[in-house]
Amino acid sequence: MTSETTNSPMRRALPSMSVLGPVLALIVLVVIGASLNANFLGTANITNVLARSAFIGIIAVGMTFVITAGGLDLSVGSMAAFIAGLMILVMNAALPSLGVGVPIILLGMAVALLAGLVAGLLNGFLITTLGIEAFIVTLGSMGIYRSLVTWLADGGTLSLDFELRTFYRPVYFDGILGISWPIIVFAIVVIVGELLMSRAKFGRHCAAIGSNESVAHYSNVDVNRTRLLTYAMLGLLVGVATIMYVPRLGSASASTGLLWELEAIAAVIIGGTVLKGGFGRVWGTVIGVLILSLIDNILNLTDLVSPYLNGAIQGVIIILAVILQREAKAKG
């Protein structure tokens, strides 16, 4: 044990498989895509894929914090649909008084952010203060928001006023320097999220709570407040995602955001965050989101497999990505 007592200098080994796994999977997908279709690496396609990933991506960044802190949120998909519906209703209602212009867009955005924040706080309050299982609370709110949007839309589709939509459209399709807004916003959310997770007190506290709640409590971490904040932040990010989503098609219906929660959770786990909490990484989540979008994109761009099997291919890749990480863990 004498050798142990000397402080051996930090050895820089190769990054472990848990880091390499998702990155490798992504690279393999890109190579496959590029070899199958010449347009795959074109600017237009890359823009499409990134912009499309932005909704789930922004939500998944928030989900990373919730899961890292040992929680779960199943309600984000229907929450997004509800917020989108609410936003459209408010904007349509304000149209006669505000007219088409920047103020009404800002009003819509404020409504989305506020609604997201309130919805997130509500989930968080029920989970932390009342101490109800996150799974149950968010399963419940998932049903509630889904029904609310169906009700608001009267079973049909809520559509943004046509002129308003034309005015609002650039928020999804335009951007600066050829990079569209959803991609820019996604990038900002990711950078802030990564810093928050790996460099800030908040991320450290989330990991501590997910790792062992009692240790966190005994270490002067305000467990309930931190948890509540993760849900509030997720809600807010759902609001941000909705702001990007609404201008794309200008409508919301009962099928908006269907299964987004599962895609977001899958992306988080593929990225290497531990489902039972204690460890999370935002950049991994981004890779997870990109992997999921690329699978769809590649399957659409090629005629390799029957479209009936898209879901199966996704499933296999999700499981493979996670096995790659496990394998690494077992070897130490």
Partner: peptide, 23 residues
């Protein structure tokens, strides 16, 4: 020249059409 499921859904059909336009 191409056929894919858009699941009677606006978002899905948007994505599929984007990819068709690329292809």
């Amino acid at each position: 020249i191409d056929m894919e499921h858009g699941n009677w859904n606006r978002d899905d059909s948007f994505n599929v059409m984007q990819d068709f336009l690329q292809k």
